[in-house]
Nucleic acid binder design. Structure first.
Lengths: 231, 231
DNA sequence: TCAAAAGTGTTGTGCATACACCCATGC
DNA sequence: GCATGGGTGTATGCACAACACTTTTGA
């Protein structure tokens, strides 16, 4: 079989930055690395691409392995290729980020990885360039969420407006005026009010809403301006 | 030296999508591929990453080889990893797009590649998945240009408002109201009017402007809304 | 004087912001 | 009855879109 001559093959890994939201805090799922080097240090979940597997496929596989979840919101973030980013062997990493409904994740699925959720502000030191990747992912999510309704991917089927608002406040790490917030959200027409209330957070209870999936899909590409523009 | 076991190294290439604007049309620079397979077919300019070279570095090198230009606007677009995208050998391609001032490009620089500029609408069939990459790059540029002043990268130091407007019209393939356009542009404060006029396009002549580089840098990250929102 | 492109203002509308109080309920 | 969080309305200003005519000047 013919090959390109004089080229150095390298390893290609896919790493996944997995975000979740428990109703209070935005969280990141990281694992204790199982192999040398830096075994047992905190790391993003990742793996090498298999033969016959494309990048998206590898990301889905890795996510499935760790979380047991299919059909997750997954987006390619960036490729990292510093020659020395992995001290053992040259490895180019293609990084994806995922937004999952944390309630669908069950710790039992795969305990071999010693996975743990950390609040975003309390994420420990990660191996290699993984901290940089996480920062880039947060920047991208803030950018995207300001224009497109991606944060719903983090919520369960039923959620309340206060939960949603808190999520935005977590992502942007700043308070939001709730009258204006509600107006924007309702104006977008993305939510369907349910009869049921969540009474866990207050005496009065907050109405549950669900996402109008048709509209969500239809409006995903248009610019929605959920977030006040920074002056 | 220790290595990861049981992994298949693959080739990693960097391909560059190079845009230029000649004052009339948005154009793409492609080359006639020099090596088998599909030798002599139209292709993006690319190359394999060298040892000791990171991805951005490889992109810069490739761009320099073809155009002779340093300090070009260059942005990573996406990584492509379909197992069979290159029929010879598994190759993951990390794609960058570049916006250059076409006047700085001189064909003499490097004629071995048989490079040619094509109007965007007349780009020929390219090898492998390169057409898909170009489409993705255009989508991204439209997205970016609607919010951030990136298109100035395509213009020479001195340019006229009609040129600039035509560039936006090329990118979005639709006419723009020039009163509203001028208002937005001047309101942004990004342009500095020069005394000189370009008399080549009309009897009356159009004033040259240059970019206020301070403001351009400062405002690059903020949302500018240059383009009317699609309803 | 005419053709061809450059340049210029106004108005209406909708959207974003700022801001403070009442509501419902369980204890 | 009171404490806690949920929910609601209005006034103001700004930014955008729609729209047509005058200016300049070389031929």
């Amino acid at each position: 079989m013919v090959k390109y001559i004089n080229q150095n093959p390298v390893l290609v890994a896919v790493d996944c930055i997995i975000f979740g939201y428990d109703g209070e805090h935005l969280k990141l799922l990281v694992i204790k690395r199982a192999i040398e080097p830096v075994k047992n240090q905190w790391s993003l979940m990742g793996g090498f691409i298999g033969p016959g597997e494309d990048l998206d496929g590898a990301a889905k596989r890795i996510l499935l392995e760790l979380t047991g979840l299919h059909d997750v919101y997954l987006e390619q973030l960036h490729a990292y290729g510093q020659p020395d980013r992995d001290p053992i062997e040259r490895t180019v990493s293609v990084v994806y980020f995922a937004l999952i409904d944390i309630h669908k994740y069950s710790k039992q699925i795969n305990d071999q990885y010693h996975a743990e959720w950390f609040k975003l502000k309390e994420v420990p030191e990660l191996i290699f360039d993984h901290n940089i990747m996480v920062k880039a992912a947060m920047d991208k999510i803030r950018y995207q969420a300001a224009l497109h309704p991606i944060l719903f991917e983090l919520l369960p089927k039923k959620f309340t407006i206060p939960q949603l608002q808190n999520l935005y406040e977590q992502v942007y790490d700043s308070p939001i005026d709730n009258r204006n917030f509600i107006r924007k959200i309702t104006a977008s027409g993305l939510l369907i009010k349910l009869a049921e209330k969540d009474k866990s957070g207050s005496r009065r209870g907050a109405f549950y809403f669900k996402l109008d999936k048709q509209k969500h899909k239809a409006q995903f590409q248009s610019f929605l301006n959920f977030i006040s523009k920074p002056k």
